[in-house]
Structure formats: structure tokens, C-alpha cells
Simulated assay, not measured.
Amino acid sequence: FFMNADMKLIYADLSKLLPEHEIKIVDRDTSENQLLISTYTDRSPGSMYLYQVNAKNLSKLTDFNPDIKAEELCSMKPVSYKARDGLLINGYLTLPQTKNQTNLPVIMLPHNGPWSRNSWGYNAEVQFLANRGYAVFQVNYRGSTGYGKAFLSAGFKEVGGKIQQDITDGVKWLINQKIANPKKIAIYGAGFGGFSALHGISFNPGLYQCAVVQYGLINFFTYIKDVPPFLKPYLSMTYEMVGNPEKDADMLRSVSPVFHTDKIKVPLLIFQGAKDPRANISEVNQFVRDLRNREVNVKYVLKENERTYFKNEQNRLDMYADIENFLQSNLGNKK
């Protein structure tokens, strides 16, 4: 929707010049004749252009990463399916550039949040996985933003309920569509996505062959109790959207992975920064010990000088090498 007719014409012209690109005007001169344009696609991190309105002339200034070749990357396609209660769930499916496009090994990649969303565009992690021959499925389960108030509200107090059912229903849809090889499916997530990965392997035996977790949420009680001071004003909303540790204790306990180590049977790869301000490291360490005592195959990578996200370049390279080897070992996929 455009409130300015002139701007609508400008975007219409830019869309013709840059088809199938996401386009954003990031700056302009005082006369609004020269516009700085940022663009990207699902196979390119993007470029910067100068657009001269009066002359309708577009010139490229730079690429964000000129080493990336779009033709070597994989397309991200929007898809949709019905959850078990009939709710329409949208998501994105990225298939590898392989001759066979059916019966593929699949990585389910639930997003963090949960009150956020996946969007169409360039995602280096998705491309990394697709390049290794995996189909990558990103689901905007109920509670995700961008689909209206009713869809957002449908996720309230469903963090371990219907939200997780939406993810499971997405995997089953892929199997029914003959896209997924039911014996080669992994789930991989960070933060709340990490919780979804742990929930998936705990309560859906046989659906996933392994899981990868980055800074995963394992206990809703400590996660809410240890909220940092700058987030305390949002606690009442957290109680409404996630659950109240006192009033909803049974529900939160029933879905927190730390209380269900007996249900996890498949290989697990966990990454955690020791300085993560939102993690209780002693609890994560105990969670891993409990799993190992139950003879679960767990590789635990704890980096002493990292916070939530691994930012050290070597740590990130090592992490993705570990992920590649772990998935190959447990899904038996060789591109």
C-alpha cells in the first residue's frame, strides 16, 4: 500500500528494472531525485544501486558479497499446508540443486522467537544446508508475526502445544508430498527453535533421526525467573503469551525439555556460549550429563568466550563443520 502516488510509480519502475528482487529505498537527496536503493533475493545477499528518478536510470554501486554466484544457490519457495485443526500454515521450502527432487533428506528449521517469523530472502544457513544436499523447511507456525492478530494470538500459551503440532504437521506434509525421505529427517533450531528441536525429538519418537540445538531453551521456569532487568517490564506479557510459572506450572513443566531427558533417544548436537546472558549454564551442563547418563549420543560444544551467538570466526567455522559432519553421519547423506 502506497500513501504517495509518486512513490508508487517509482517502485513500479524499480520492480521492472529489478524483477524478483526485494527493493528498499534507504536514502535520498533533498530533491528526491537521486535515491539509494538496497536489494536482495533468495539467492543473493543483495546489492546497492543509485536510481535517478527523472532520468529513470539505475546504476549498480556495489554487491554485498560479489563472490556469491546466484546460479550456484537454491531457490526459496513459499508453501502452505493445513495443520491438524485446519489452520493454514505458511512457510518456505528450499530444495537442493540435485537431479532428484523427491525422497530427499530434510532439515526442519523452526525459527527463534516464537513471536517472530521466517521471511523470503537470502539466508546463508539455509544455503549452507541446501548446498549439502538437504531440503530445508522453514515453518511460520501459529504465533509467528506478519499474519494478523488472530494468528499471533493463536500461539499464546501454546509454546509446547499447537505451535509444536504445526511443526510436526509440516514434516508429515513433506512426507505425504513425497518430498521428504521419512528415514532422513533432522530438526535444527536456535533459542526457541532449539526448544522446538528438543521438543520434537522428545515427543515424536521415530519422526527425527537427530537434532541440532544452538543456545536452546530447556527450562521455561528458569528462563522466566532469570529474566534480565531490562526485560522485567515485559513479564506480564510473557505470562500471557508463554505462561505464568505459578498458575501454569503443570503446563510449563510438561513441555520443558530439562524434565524429559528420558524421552530423548536420538543423537544430539548442542552448541552453547558460556557467557550467554539468557542461559543457566550449570543447568545446561546438568541436562547434558543426564542425557549421557542415559546413554544418549550427545556432542556438547561449550565455548567459554562466546555469548548467545558465536561471533568468533574460527568458532563459527568449527560449528558449521561439526553440523555438516553430524548431519552426514546421522542422515547418511552425501551430495
Rank of each mutant, 00 (worst) to 15 (best):
213 V>I: 12
213 V>K: 03
213 V>M: 07
215 Y>K: 07
216 G>D: 02
216 G>Q: 00
219 N>E: 01
219 N>W: 01
220 F>M: 12
220 F>T: 04
222 T>G: 05
223 Y>M: 09
223 Y>T: 13
225 K>D: 15
225 K>C: 04
226 D>H: 14
228 P>R: 08
229 P>N: 15
229 P>R: 07
230 F>Q: 10
230 F>H: 10
230 F>G: 00
231 L>K: 13
231 L>V: 15
232 K>F: 01
233 P>L: 13
234 Y>N: 08
235 L>M: 09
237 M>K: 15
239 Y>Q: 07
239 Y>A: 13
239 Y>T: 00
240 E>R: 07
241 M>I: 09
242 V>L: 12
242 V>M: 10
243 G>N: 00
244 N>S: 04
244 N>I: 05
244 N>F: 03
244 N>D: 15
244 N>C: 05
245 P>Q: 08
245 P>E: 07
247 K>C: 05
247 K>N: 08
248 D>F: 09
249 A>C: 04
249 A>E: 14
250 D>V: 15
251 M>C: 00
252 L>F: 07
252 L>E: 06
252 L>Y: 12
252 L>V: 12
252 L>G: 02
253 R>K: 15
253 R>F: 03
253 R>Q: 14
253 R>I: 11
254 S>A: 14
255 V>F: 10
255 V>H: 02
256 S>N: 04
256 S>C: 05
256 S>F: 13
257 P>S: 10
257 P>D: 06
258 V>Y: 12
258 V>M: 07
259 F>Q: 13
260 H>I: 09
260 H>A: 12
261 T>Q: 02
261 T>E: 08
263 K>W: 06
263 K>M: 05
264 I>S: 01
265 K>A: 09
265 K>C: 05
266 V>T: 13
266 V>R: 06
266 V>L: 06
266 V>H: 02
267 P>L: 00
267 P>D: 01
267 P>A: 10
270 I>D: 03
270 I>E: 02
271 F>V: 06
271 F>N: 04
272 Q>F: 02
273 G>E: 04
273 G>H: 01
274 A>C: 03
274 A>H: 08
274 A>K: 05
276 D>Y: 08
277 P>M: 10
277 P>L: 13
277 P>F: 10
280 N>Y: 08
280 N>E: 10
281 I>H: 09
282 S>P: 01
282 S>A: 14
283 E>L: 13
283 E>V: 11
284 V>D: 08
285 N>Q: 13
286 Q>P: 02
286 Q>W: 10
288 V>I: 14
290 D>C: 08
290 D>Y: 06
293 N>I: 04
293 N>R: 12
294 R>G: 13
294 R>M: 11
295 E>I: 00
295 E>T: 15
295 E>Y: 14
296 V>C: 09
296 V>A: 05
297 N>K: 15
297 N>W: 01
298 V>M: 06
299 K>D: 10
302 L>C: 11
302 L>T: 01
304 E>L: 07
304 E>Q: 14
306 E>T: 04
